[in-house]
Amino acid sequence: MTTATSHLARLSPRASCASCWNWLPHVHYPIVGYCTLWAEATFDDYYCPGYVLLEIKTERLYWCSTCRIKLTREEAALHWSHGHRIFRSAYVEPDVKEEIYEG
């Protein structure tokens, strides 16, 4: 049974945007995302020297792109232990409202 503290391990065996602290996956299509370091979009399998391994350490809200939901640190660790993809946050296109229906 995984405990809530086992998240200190690397999230991805391989360094790429998908495990980088600087990278926010697209809210709907997480194969692309937004790099806050370079201020541009990249694919999830890109890599750059600015790579910083994402760790679920800081008390803050995280984004689970598997569940498309914001999580507390503890919840994020738990989701990660179940194989979910955890990120610092998500990228939402600025003009997303054009695609949304009244509900």
Binding site: H26, I31, Y34, A41, T42, E93
Partner: peptide
């Protein structure tokens, strides 16, 4: 293969990937 096709679109246009991501 949406990701592979998206990469192809990215290769074929000078547009920033943020705009390309919206072409799925």
């Amino acid at each position: 293969p949406l990701k592979a096709l998206l990469k192809k679109v990215s290769d074929e246009t000078a547009s920033p990937l943020a705009a390309i991501a919206k072409t799925i």
